[in-house]
């Protein structure tokens, strides 16, 4: 008989399972990044290091393109900062829950705090118990391993693989986010926040506005907050 598994292990597994659609959805991008880096003259170690320690899809692809074009160090770092700035919002949102946790949890979950992990952080009790911390570690850690595995495949297979980004696997990201957002719409203010963010994100993206994501998020939040304040006055 197998030993009955420890609840921490099942929390890890549950996190990894919930993350699975997102881990699979980024497969084309991980492969694209790995092969792009090699084509642009990076060594396999540098390509893998970008996924292993920088660990930010959009930042990695931008950095490889800019560095291959001979952009200045400042340009590369500044662009990375701009792309990465949305994470400040995630940290602020989770601050009250995580700031009192032990350093090792803050460092590890902070390192793993991607869009995808933030997406799975909406639960009322998220990060509030050991079990919930293990859940987040399973989700964030499995996503990290997947992203690095996909990068590795891209590095080895390189240009011999077809471009998979046209396959539509990114719909899994949309479907997962819909599954997380829709049940959270329990009041008029959240509905307004979502609608404003939706309209702004599509509009800004079409206008090629940099920081489109951060601006549309902030505008949606402001709209929701305003409606809630207005409702309280009524």
């Amino acid at each position: 008989m197998k030993k009955v598994s420890h609840p921490f292990y099942s929390a890890l597994g549950k996190g990894a399972l919930d993350m699975l659609p997102l881990s699979l959805a980024v497969l084309p991008w991980g492969i694209l990044f790995g092969s792009l880096a090699i084509q642009r003259g990076f060594t396999w170690l540098e390509a893998q290091a970008l996924s292993a320690i920088t660990f930010g899809g959009a930042v990695q692809i931008m950095a490889v393109e800019l560095m291959a074009d001979g952009a200045s160090l400042f340009t590369v770092l500044f662009s990375a900062f701009v792309i990465s700035s949305r994470h400040f919002l995630y940290g602020l949102t989770l601050r009250e829950r995580l700031k009192t946790q032990p350093l090792r949890w803050r460092l590890s979950l902070g390192f793993l705090l991607t869009d995808e992990l933030f997406a799975l952080s909406g639960h009322r009790r998220a990060y509030k118990s050991r079990l919930r911390l293990f859940y987040a570690l399973g989700a964030g850690g499995s996503f990290y391993l997947a992203w690095n595995a996909w990068t590795f495949i891209g590095i080895i297979a390189g240009a011999s693989l077809p471009d998979l980004t046209e396959l539509g696997l990114d719909f899994a990201i949309a479907a997962t986010f819909i599954a997380l957002v829709v049940p959270s719409i329990k009041s008029l203010s959240v509905l307004v926040a979502v609608l404003v963010a939706a309209v702004c994100s599509v509009t800004f993206e079409l206008m090629d506005i940099e920081l489109s994501l951060v601006f549309s998020g902030l505008l949606g939040m402001t709209a929701g907050f305003t409606v809630a304040q207005w409702e309280r006055l009524q």
């Binding site: 949305r86 919002l89 995630y90 602020l92 949102t93 869009d115 933030f118 997406a119 952080s121 909406g122 990201i173 949309a174 986010f177 819909i178 997380l180 957002v181 959270s184 719409i185 203010s189 959240v190 926040a193 979502v194 404003v196 963010a197 939706a198 702004c200 994100s201 489109s212 994501l213 549309s216 998020g217 902030l218 949606g220 939040m221 929701g224 907050f225």
Partner: peptide, 11 residues
């Protein structure tokens, strides 16, 4: 409101 707003803006 950051969760619903940002996730919507991504997808």
């Amino acid at each position: 409101y950051s969760g619903p707003a940002i996730l919507t803006a991504i997808c």
